[in-house]
């Protein structure tokens, strides 16, 4: 698969203003920003953030996401417990949403990021098209993982009936937030054009 890349054409895109120009420039002709062919340290950053996100996902799933104090009884539930809870109570919709948003999507995202990183690493250029599609998907839905946090935040702020029922965030919430944030950052730092760089890899 030979395709034309910006490198092969000798063009470079300013990451700031988007002007396509010769790659010989150091600075953009339009905005003056330093021209980078590819995102700076894209791979390593993406690896870093993806690992961070992965690491944070561990406590996010082990520690309780939400501590419900109902009638003096503290109950911490992790994400999965919450999902199971909703499912067991017949709330399939909510349960489904939380599962998708809090469990499936983050894992999916990370999986995709790893996949992308790995195909670059292993120069699996045939998978580049697929990877690109996947990248677009996770890029878009990335932020929606915060849905679960949003639910927790809403619950915490709404269910504050002292003594009767009150909800507090557990440790997992922070971890989960971090995880989601890092996945977003990681998708941001990832330069998908790297998947198409057959010949050389520019490491800037």
């Amino acid at each position: 698969m030979i395709w034309k890349t910006d490198i092969s054409e000798g063009k470079s895109l300013c990451h700031l203003c988007g002007k396509l120009q010769e790659r010989t420039q150091d600075e953009c002709l339009r905005c003056g920003e330093t021209l980078h062919q590819r995102k700076v340290h894209s791979l390593v950053q993406t690896w870093g953030y993806a690992l961070a996100a992965t690491l944070f996902l561990i406590p996010a799933n082990i520690m309780p996401m939400m501590i419900v104090t109902a009638m003096g009884n503290n109950e911490g539930s992790t994400i999965m417990e919450g999902v199971i809870y909703f499912f067991s109570h017949g709330e399939y919709a909510i349960g489904g949403i939380i599962f998708i948003a809090s469990v499936a999507v983050p894992i999916f995202k990370l999986a995709v990021v790893y996949f992308l990183l790995l195909i670059i690493q292993f120069k699996q250029f045939d998978k580049a098209q697929t990877g690109l599609k996947l990248f677009h998907i996770i890029h878009i839905i990335g932020k929606w993982s915060m849905l679960d946090i949003f639910v927790v935040a809403l619950m915490v702020s709404l269910v504050q009936f002292q003594g009767l029922a009150s909800i507090q965030t557990g440790g997992a919430a922070i971890a989960f937030c971090a995880a989601v944030v890092f996945t977003i950052i990681s998708t941001n730092t990832f330069d998908p054009r790297l998947m198409f760089d057959i010949n050389k890899r520019e490491s800037i």
Binding site: V44, L51, F56, F182
Partner: peptide, 9 residues
């Protein structure tokens, strides 16, 4: 950038 995963860990 590796600090971040490190810190995360």
């Amino acid at each position: 950038v590796w600090i971040i995963p490190f810190v995360a860990m």
